[in-house]
Amino acid sequence: MSMGRGELTLERRAHVHSAKPMRHALTAFLAALDVPESEQVGVITAVGEALANAVEHAYRDSEVRDVSLRARLDADGTLAVDVVDGGRHTTAVQQIDRGFGLRIMRAIAQSVKMDASDGTALRMFFKLSA
């Protein structure tokens, strides 16, 4: 198992105004780990799409939910990011995506995996310069 360079965990109420501070926290985390700015831009763009999808669920019904973001950067430059929308809903991720989101995430991340069985969990891997 590889050594971790750093880990970030955030949880906020799923609200459209929560995406921005979560992106900013992720930017600060990447900057603190000396990830080059051009790579930060890609990660923030992809994760920003996942966060936008997650917080937009909050308006689908009246149930209060949280959205969590976990990022872990390993010594080999692998960045794993999980965005989890903790609500119980059965809507497939594809249906709640606003058209461009998945295309953008797939264009940037090495892999994008979704699990909509228990809330919506999205995991992305990025290969950054170590």
């Binding site: 995406a19 992106r23 923030i44 763009t45 920003g48 799409e49 936008a52 606003r98 058209g99 461009f100 989101g101 953008i104």
Partner: peptide, 9 residues
């Protein structure tokens, strides 16, 4: 300084 797919749409 930043745009997401909401803006693109």
């Amino acid at each position: 300084t930043y745009a997401d797919s909401t803006a693109l749409t």
